[in-house]
């Protein structure tokens, strides 16, 4: 299936979860300051591995930067 990860279209197996996306981006599972939104809703870290991606999902993976 095709999903959009941080604005980039990617092909993922239909069993892909939020956790697989995070792994794809080379983020350690315990990395601090990282959060994920799936179709505009936050997915808490404890649900990353059990949250499957719907086809066409839009995933935003964000991290802390300097700002403000």
């Amino acid at each position: 299936m095709i999903v959009t990860i941080n604005g980039e279209r990617r092909e993922l197996p239909s069993s892909a979860t939020v956790a697989s996306v995070v792994e794809l981006l080379d983020v350690a599972p315990a990395a601090r300051g990282v959060a994920v939104a799936l179709n505009g809703e936050v997915v808490t870290r404890s649900r990353w591995s059990q949250t499957e991606l719907p086809d066409g999902a839009r995933i935003e993976v964000v991290a802390a930067i300097q700002g403000g």
């Binding site: 941080n6 981006l25 080379d26 601090r32 300051g33 991290a63 930067i65 300097q66 403000g68």
Partner: peptide, 17 residues
């Protein structure tokens, strides 16, 4: 201190946190 969120940059080194 304020911090912001942006799309994760896999090449970024060292966290502000």
């Amino acid at each position: 201190c304020t911090v912001a969120l942006r799309r994760l940059d896999p090449a970024a080194r060292g966290s502000i946190l």
